[in-house]
Design a protein around this nucleic acid. Structure first.
Lengths: 303, 303
DNA sequence: ACAAAAGTGTTAAACTTACACCCATGC
DNA sequence: GCATGGGTGTAAGTTTAACACTTTTGT
């Protein structure tokens, strides 16, 4: 209920207002949908199958960037918010109707789309891979999981008196069966007269559509940062009931480092509730299943 | 240097591509420019003048929302990124050419602008108030500082079995001389089958244009959160040389609570370098001036 | 003298880190 | 038996929070 009441004069003004007087961009939402995937079956009888981080990609059936791989996404409609666009597209493409979905960046470089001025809001989405069903690939639609790996290749620091520039190069590698995609993206962090700014540039690109190599990298970095900060978003990659080890595995995959189990469990303790269900693994002791402690979440416990 | 090479067929396709086939929104950048302002002069001979958080507003000279107050901002141009739009507008309106500037949210609610489909990228900007010069107010332009206060009015928790909703109402009060603006904004945090989502709704609005009451509130909350997390952005509100007390004051103003000086100093110690300059205040011991330790910033010390 | 702000030291509590150790299972 | 993951305890180190206290200045 807003107190503002429109005058007759204002209504008249609005009627005469021509919105096309300014150039307008097309608006899209692109989603980086992450999941924890199982890589093949465990050959060794005792070992659990290896898990890796996966991201959902679509093979483009039309120009531009025909046969390249792009993030799932689509154009915004006039009567929805951009969040609704993302949610609608996610549902259409993954049949998942409940997922973590959060904007992480706006991409508006003039040259990013050869069709013209098209800007994109990037969304970070996390789903439980088991819950997700792949939509059968039609012509234009072939949504598939890729394994994703990001490595920091090198870092250069140029420091002057009142200015510093930190350049970091990230190698982005993705694969699915025999299909391999690769890109090299440079992050430039500039500290000039004590203000920080960040820019990204795609240096090499093999197989990605548009500027999606950059979007994917930034989505990955956002995921990693959010995980390092609070770890609460990692739950969205798991089913409702999970073992503490699978939670730890997810953390390790995202952070790219091994964690110490006892410490990890202490940290997670306030965020989970023990259930009386158990799950058995091959060749080792059965594990308790846990579920989230919703209360801790909304009370911001264990930040 | 991208490896992708365009085929003749693709070029042909692009020539025939009609970008107007999808409805397009207009795109604007709106900036919440914050600064620490001095409220009047200190009457009491010993006391330093009181400082408050200020935000830059523009009085609208044209419809819609004529005579209401809006955030500075403007339409994006076709050959710039949205960050460039923000920077250009900030420069035009404040003459500041170096400032902290960071996107914090996209606003795309269908009804947000009576002129039609106009979406806005919100930017958080921090400037040193002393460096800033107010542009003389022309007809359409009257940029002025408002004091801003945000209070949490009430909080309701509705908890069901697998769903929780936390509603928080924020009272936004702004003032400049005799002009007072006020709004009540509700934040609804929903935890549904363990996914979190946030929505905002303007419940009362007195004097703000468009949905700017919501944008301002969210900018303020973003500023507060960033400050609580790392405190590094607060430096952008200060001149290059500053006293530790003024830094603490800025923190206190943003966080809305008193901090303990010894602890605060220990925390800031790695981020600052002592200079040999001093500054004298009325009726108390002179203070050392400090400057930032750039190195600590880009090495991510003292997170 | 004295109030205001500048600045230092000291302690207990809380959290993090690293490591050592035992348990249960299927082959 | 034994490798693998499940699970607990404990001690050292670091960080945070709270408080007490001294210094310097202009009126």
């Amino acid at each position: 209920m807003k107190n503002y009441v429109m005058s007759a004069e204002e209504k008249k003004y609005l009627k005469g207002y021509d919105i096309t007087q300014y150039a307008r961009p097309s608006l899209t939402a692109d989603m980086a949908v992450f999941a924890v995937l199982t890589e093949g079956d465990s050959k060794e009888y005792r070992k659990d199958p290896k898990k890796r981080l996966g991201i959902l990609m679509i093979r483009r059936g039309t120009y531009p960037y025909k046969d390249c791989y792009a993030l799932p996404g689509g154009f915004a409609r006039e009567n929805e918010r951009i969040e609704d666009t993302a949610f609608r597209e996610l549902k259409e493409e993954t049949s998942v109707d409940s997922a973590f979905l959060e904007p992480f960046g706006m991409f508006s470089r003039p040259e990013r789309d050869p069709r013209g001025w098209i800007i994109s809001q990037g969304f970070l989405a996390l789903v439980d891979a088991d819950k997700y069903r792949v939509r059968a690939g039609t012509d234009a639609w072939e949504a598939t999981w890729f394994f994703i790996d990001v490595e920091q290749e090198e870092q250069n620091k140029h420091v002057h008196k009142d200015k510093a520039e930190i350049c970091t190069r990230y190698r982005l590698k993705m694969e699915r069966d025999a299909t391999k995609l690769s890109a090299l993206v440079e992050e430039r962090r500039t500290f000039c007269s004590h203000h920080e700014s960040v820019e990204y540039e795609i240096l090499e690109d093999d197989g990605f559509a548009f500027d999606h190599a950059e979007i994917i990298l930034r989505a990955y970095l956002a995921l990693r940062e959010r995980t390092a900060q609070s770890g609460r978003i990692v739950f969205d990659l798991l089913p409702e009931r999970f073992t503490l080890y699978s939670l730890q595995e997810a953390h390790e995959i995202i952070l790219g480092e091994k964690l110490l189990t006892p410490n990890f469990r202490r940290k997670m303790a306030p965020l989970v509730i023990e259930t009386d269900e158990m799950v058995t693994g091959p060749g080792h002791r059965p594990a308790k299943l846990f579920r989230r402690n919703l209360e801790a979440f909304y009370n911001n416990k264990g930040e």
